[in-house]
Every structure is written in C-alpha cells, then in structure tokens.
C-alpha cells in the first residue's frame, strides 16, 4: 500500500500518534481511527458544515482537510464539549430551546457556535444568523438554534460551569 505518514494529534486533550495514508481525510481519521463518531459527514465537499471541528481553536471542515495537514494540531470535537455528566452551556441551551431535531448537523453546529461566541461573546441575533450560515441544518429552520446560541452567550461569558447540572428529568417551560 501507499506510504504511511506519522502524525500526532491532540484530540479533546488526549494525544494520539498515528501513521496515516496521506489521502486520509481528517474526518475519517477522527471517526474510524479514533472512534470519535460524533463528527459527521454530510457532503464531503465543504459546503454543509456537518463535519466542522475546531483545529487550534478555529473551526474547519474536516471533510476537506487531510489528516496530514493537521499534524501537530490540537483538535476539539463534540465529544470534548461536555464535562463528564455536565453538558456544555451550548449543549444545554440547544436542549432547552429545541435547537435540534435529527441531531445530524448538531455537533458541527455546536463547534461553530463555540468559536462564534469566543470571537463575539455578546452577539446580536443577526450576527448569530450570519455566523452559523456556514453550517446547514435541514430540520430546524435555524430559528431555535439562533435562540440557543443567544441563550448560551451570557453563560459562556460568565465562564462558569453549567449552572444546572444535567439531569435526565425535568420539564422546561
């Protein structure tokens, strides 16, 4: 087979050393080699944003990024958002606001929203709409996603852990 290239990736704080074919897409390495299947594949040509992950803090399309291009990088995927049992404020607000239906675009949307709120901690609805325009959602019509991001913004600004620990019960008005 083709020559393999050694790469190292730090994914969600954990370091991995791998040998990959240069053509392997980052999304496939994350999913198939590291078992992190939360990063989904939507179009494989960089349009839909389903495969979005953070690479050194910046959102990228992992379906049009070669794994060798990420050598040495720090990567964050949806699996790295929650702190154990406690959901990330964005996850919590997506749940509260019903910012998802089928859940397929959700991981990419969450990571893009993460970057957006780090760059624009107190965004307007318009800024959120424009910010998440990079990621397609076919279910929700985006409205509740925008609400969720806006609701998460103050919680992320406080930089405190989620105020209410995630429980499996409880209604939301």
């Amino acid at each position: 087979m083709t020559d393999l290239h050694p790469i190292s990736l730090t994914v969600n704080g954990r370091e991995y050393t791998l040998a990959v074919e240069p053509r392997r897409l980052l999304v496939d390495v994350l999913r198939d080699d590291l078992g992190l299947t939360g990063t989904h594949i939507g179009c494989e040509h960089g349009v839909c944003g389903t495969c979005t992950v953070l690479l050194d803090g910046a959102s990228i399309r992992s379906c049009i990024t070669l794994a060798v291009q990420a050598d040495g990088a720090e990567i964050r995927t949806v699996e790295g958002l929650a702190d154990g049992a406690v959901l990330h404020p964005l996850q919590e607000e997506f749940w509260n606001k019903q910012g998802l239906q089928c859940g397929y675009c959700t991981p990419g949307m969450l990571l893009r929203a993460c970057e957006l709120l780090e760059q624009t901690p107190d965004p307007t609805a318009e800024q959120v709409r424009e910010g998440i325009a990079s990621n397609l959602c076919r279910c929700t019509g985006y409205a509740y996603i925008v609400e969720a991001v806006l609701a998460a913004a103050p919680r992320m600004r406080e930089r405190t852990p989620a105020q209410t620990p995630t429980e499996t019960t409880g209604a939301q008005a």
Partner: peptide, 19 residues
C-alpha cells in the same frame, strides 16, 4: 413543551447513525 427526551445523545455526538 418539555425538553425532548432523545436530545442528550445527539447533543453529545452519540446518535448512533448508520455510519
């Protein structure tokens, strides 16, 4: 309008889709 019971697994990227 309760929070949807199936959402947590999707929010954590644990949907278990065909892929």
């Amino acid at each position: 309008s309760i929070r949807k019971v199936e959402d947590p697994k999707f929010l954590r990227g644990r949907g278990g889709y065909i892929a």
